[in-house]
């Protein structure tokens, strides 16, 4: 058995994050950490240490699929593993992210009203007003709802992939993982040119 490190328990934080969103949507803002930390790590250290060590979400899928044996443990189909799909999914994800920022902007500038919903899989709107208890500026809440939608959607997709294929199948298509690897590849290419 390998020795456990403190960072092997970050899956607890990832689970807690998802649970907190059911009680107070404003906790969704904390999710920005798992957006900026991986990118900063790859930008400054040129490694995928976030994926390799610290990502609680990857650990969570690992535990559910491996330890609890919830995964079918079958290989992923080739199209799902292809570069084409991986980067198309990243692009789609970024567009959806941009749209979420745009919605926040519309609420900020008073063009539209705050919608207290969590949108799953970019289409299903779930009423979520019970988790909006702390009064804040509408755009702050709008961003929280939008960001939490992104996090919950990707968790659900990851869970489905975990059930159908390998425990950490999500990591093959994960937009964060793709982005950090692209940064690393870019940095490496620049280094080799010098």
């Amino acid at each position: 058995m390998k020795r456990k490190h403190w960072y092997d328990y970050l899956w607890v934080i990832s689970s807690l994050y998802l649970i907190l969103g059911f009680f107070n949507i404003l906790f969704a803002w904390l999710g920005l950490l798992c957006f900026f930390i991986p990118l900063l790590i790859s930008l400054f250290s040129g490694t995928k240490a976030y994926c390799n060590r610290y990502c609680g979400r990857g650990q969570l899928f690992g535990i559910l699929g491996e330890k609890l044996k919830l995964s079918r443990n079958k290989p992923m189909p080739n199209w799902l593993k292809s570069h084409w799909f991986r980067y198309a999914f990243l692009a789609f994800f970024l567009v959806m992210f941009g749209q979420m920022l745009y919605t926040t902007w519309l609420v900020f500038s008073g063009v539209t009203d705050l919608k207290q919903v969590v949108t799953l899989l970019w289409s299903f709107r779930l009423p979520w007003s019970w988790a909006y208890t702390t009064p804040v500026a509408p755009w702050v809440a709008q961003f929280a709802f939008g960001f939490y939608s992104v996090m919950l959607t990707s968790t659900i997709l990851g869970l489905i992939l975990m059930l159908l294929y390998k425990p950490r199948a999500w990591c093959v298509v994960c937009p964060m993982g793709s982005m950090t690897q692209l940064v690393c590849k870019g940095k490496c290419a620049i280094k080799n040119q010098k």
Partner: peptide
């Protein structure tokens, strides 16, 4: 995809990224 799942399970620490 450099996810590191292989590195994590290797009993000989033979894998690096």
């Amino acid at each position: 995809v450099a996810c590191g799942c292989c590195m994590k399970v290797c009993p000989r620490s033979a894998i690096t990224i």
